[in-house]
Each structure stands twice: as structure tokens, then as C-alpha cells.
Design a protein around this nucleic acid. Structure first.
Ligand SMILES: [Zn+2]
Ligand SMILES: [Zn+2]
Ligand SMILES: [Zn+2]
Ligand SMILES: [Zn+2]
Lengths: 135, 135
DNA sequence: CTTTCAAATGTTATATTATTACATAGTGTT
DNA sequence: AACACTATGTAATAATATAACATTTGAAAG
């Protein structure tokens, strides 16, 4: 029953870029991707950035704004990639996508006096991870 | 009783950069600042980026990560600049700092199973502002 | 099968954002 | 004065991202 999710019809470049991000244990930068795919025939920034843009639209990856880096979506709840939350360790820089219903419910239903209706959000928490707290 | 907050001892460059950001009704980009302060003797990027860095540390300004732009702090609650929330209109790009106790209380006390203690966060909401909703 | 249209690709050049490195100058304290 | 600390000035370059245009691919319709 695991991995029932269909692997969608990614194009060649999209699949190459996605594979790199998915395999990485940490956020990947665009030019690091570019460097790593030179051997596969992708030679120029636009090819990478286009794939990234599409993958974001599909919700397969997210951009970690404070790091200008990209991670594969782990929560599969944000298929449309419109509600993302991350925890970021300030020492080891580990980034983890937060999947927490209480949090997402709260934020998805948040309204303030401005009269603005929020369709989308990005939240980045900073602190010390368990490991780094010990030191 | 308004504006009791002391105007701190900003250095010359810090004050120049801060004035520009504070006077602007929208987020200001670093190189836009640079362009605007050429006449005041600030000539190179590091001078601007250093001032920005210090102003962020002081909590006088915030960086809007999704836009690589800077806004003056309006809430005066985030002196230490460790908890910021913005609403961003996807059409007119208007950015507003959100000061909402329910939101900040919720986020400041948020904990998840990861065992990570969060000291700081940045939240960016996207949607349509009142004006743009009408069109 | 051919026409068609949208999506994806390839390529060159350039724009935008940010930092490194090193030299110099001001400021307050002992 | 000697010291430490913060801020400044300057040149060069690194890192991130987009513009513009030509070409190819792939699915859908006729
Ligand atoms: Zn996700
Ligand atoms: Zn850590
Ligand atoms: Zn603020
Ligand atoms: Zn608007």
C-alpha cells in the first residue's frame, strides 16, 4: 500500500531535477542542481529554473525562501503546494517539513481585520534541533 | 504619547538606509536603496547590506523573504525581530505586517513532536487584498 | 497521417541579489 | 596613548534568477 501515489508525468528535465532534490537529505540550491546535471545534458540555468517552477506548481517540491533552496514535499497533503511550514535548525541547518494538523488548520482558517482572504502561506520556524540543543 | 520609542543610536549609514525604507509605502529592494543613496555618498553594495543587517538585528526592519525586499517594522512588538508575519497581495503586491495576538501567541507557543524548540519564525500569507478582490 | 497547438527544451546573454577581502576611520574605555 | 570595538570605503566577484528567441516534442483533432 506504500507509494500508491502515481509518479505523474514529469518531463525529462523535470524528472532529472526532481530526482536530485528527492534523494538529497538537505535543501538543494539551484546551481548545485545545475552542476549535478551537467552530465545528463542539462547545461543552462533556465532549464533548471523551469523544471523547479513546474515542480513547485505541482507541489512536488517547495522552496525554502530563507535559504533559496529546494526540498521535496514530504507531507503529500500540500499537493497544490499552497500551505507550507518548515522547521530550520540555526546550527546544523537541517530543514524539516512540518505536517501538523493543528497548525495547518489554524493557519488555513486564519483571518484578521484586514479583510484579506488568505489562500496560501509559507511559514519558517527557526530554532535548535534536538541534536544541536545538547551541545 | 505617540512615538515615545527612542530613535536609537543609528549610525550615519544605518539612518540613511532606514529613512528610505521607513518612508516607502512598499517593500524596498537593496539595489533600489543603493540607487537612492548614491547622492548621499553611499556607493557600494556592502554599505547597504551592512546597514540592512544591523537594522534587522535591531528589529527596525524586516526582510520579506519571498520578495527579497525590506520593510520597516510597524508592530513595535517584534523589537527583537524574531517573530514576523506578513500578508502579501498576489496582484498589487501590497505587503502588510500582521499584528495579531491570537496568531503570535499560537505560533510562539507552537511545539510539535520533533522536540525542536522554536525561538523565531517568519510567516508570509498570500492572497488578494480588499481592493484587488473587487476586480 | 497530417495539421495544430501547447508544453517543453536548448542556448546565449544579461539582470539581480549578495558576499569576500582588505584598508581605513571613528568612538568610547582604561 | 593604547586598546577594543564598531562602522565605513572600495574593488572585485560570487550566487541567484530571468529575458529573449529559436527549436523540438507530444498529444489531440481533423
Ligand atoms: Zn509539502
Ligand atoms: Zn541542528
Ligand atoms: Zn515588526
Ligand atoms: Zn492587492
Amino acid at each position: 500500500m506504500a507509494k500508491m501515489q502515481k509518479e505523474y508525468n514529469l518531463s525529462k528535465n523535470q524528472q532529472i531535477v526532481f530526482d536530485i532534490i528527492e534523494k538529497s537529505s538537505e535543501p538543494v540550491k539551484a546551481y548545485s542542481i545545475l552542476f549535478n546535471v551537467k552530465k545528463k545534458g542539462i547545461k543552462a540555468p533556465p532549464q533548471v529554473y523551469r523544471a523547479l517552477e513546474k515542480l513547485i506548481k505541482l507541489g512536488k517540491i517547495h522552496k525554502v525562501e530563507s535559504k533559496n533552496a529546494f526540498v521535496a514535499c514530504k507531507s503529500s497533503n500540500c499537493e497544490i503546494s499552497k500551505a507550507t511550514a518548515f522547521s530550520i535548525c540555526e546550527i546544523c541547518e537541517k530543514v524539516t517539513e512540518i505536517a501538523n494538523n493543528k497548525l495547518s488548520n489554524f493557519l488555513n482558517s486564519f483571518e484578521d481585520k484586514s479583510g484579506m482572504k488568505y489562500k496560501k502561506y509559507n511559514l519558517e520556524f527557526f530554532g535548535l534541533c534536538k541534536k544541536c540543543k545538547k551541545t
